[in-house]
Design a protein around this nucleic acid. Structure first.
Lengths: 143, 143
DNA sequence: TGAATAATCTATTAGATTTATAGAAAACAT
DNA sequence: ATGTTTTCTATAAATCTAATAGATTATTCA
């Protein structure tokens, strides 16, 4: 399950992307928190984390606030989820961004659990890395 | 990420399925724990949970132990993971087995996060529900 | 230069979840 | 009856999640 952190983060960045389109300047944490009904102090942590990963850009002081760190078609949902919730993989031995051997593992080459979970990771990554914020805004994501 | 519980459970049931093929009788928790290097008391809980879901069968007393609750081709990896770790879905509003509205949600119909996460759930479910223990034993799962 | 604004940093915390462990009770075979 | 094996109840340490509080730093503008 996605954590609240990831959900809040997705809500927030989608809002920022929408505002960006309207050519408004940066949005302040307080406004964002109020609009999306997210606890302000918690949102601070979330935004900061995304900024440190280059997904967002911030500016202090008067007229400051948060805006996208790159164009919406360059930010994938996969990047956002990884930043806030860690690797997509269900077992660390199939993670591309944070590989390490499972402690329980006897033999990675023959592990059948690994094979199944690799399929899951790959299909998840294909979807999440293949969907950008811009796609989401355009409603390009179909059910 | 899969919990240790789910990993241990998968290891254990794969071992049971292999032993079943050899026409041995039921396997005792102690033996299973030793063979798979799983803390015995923790394994008890895990096996019991799978038994209560009909995935495993148990017998008390001398000559007792655990065996599969149905044939290996009728047990999917999806069932096992759901039993031990809960729903596959990343957000509860796209879960088939445990649907409920997200608390943060303003409008489920238009939620773009939901649309992406529904794709992820569906592809994950397709893989995990489409892979049986029998497939795993046959090495039918390809990387 | 100084006041106001807004992000950033440090620290703490309540509560939930995960990963176990201990011991007693119930079921079963011989 | 006795030993074997699962099952139930209870507890606990460690970690993670979600959040809050307060001080600090950077920036703008008058």
């Amino acid at each position: 399950m996605l954590s609240k952190k990831a959900k809040y983060g997705l809500q927030a960045i989608i809002f920022l992307a929408k505002e960006e389109k309207k050519k408004k300047g940066p949005i302040q944490i307080a406004e964002l928190a109020k609009h999306e009904k997210i606890p302000k102090k918690f949102l601070e942590i979330i935004l900061l984390e995304m900024r440190k990963h280059g997904i967002l850009h911030s500016k202090m002081g008067v007229g400051g606030g948060y805006s996208l760190g790159k164009s919406a078609d360059k930010i994938s949902i996969g990047q956002i989820v990884r930043t806030l919730d860690g690797p997509l993989a269900e077992v660390s031995c199939v993670s591309k961004t944070a590989y390490h051997k499972c402690d329980e593992c006897q033999n990675e080459k023959t592990c059948e659990i690994r094979k199944v979970m690799k399929q899951v990771r790959d299909s998840t990554a294909r979807i999440l890395d293949g969907t950008s914020l811009a796609d989401v805004l355009k409603g390009k994501v179909n059910i």
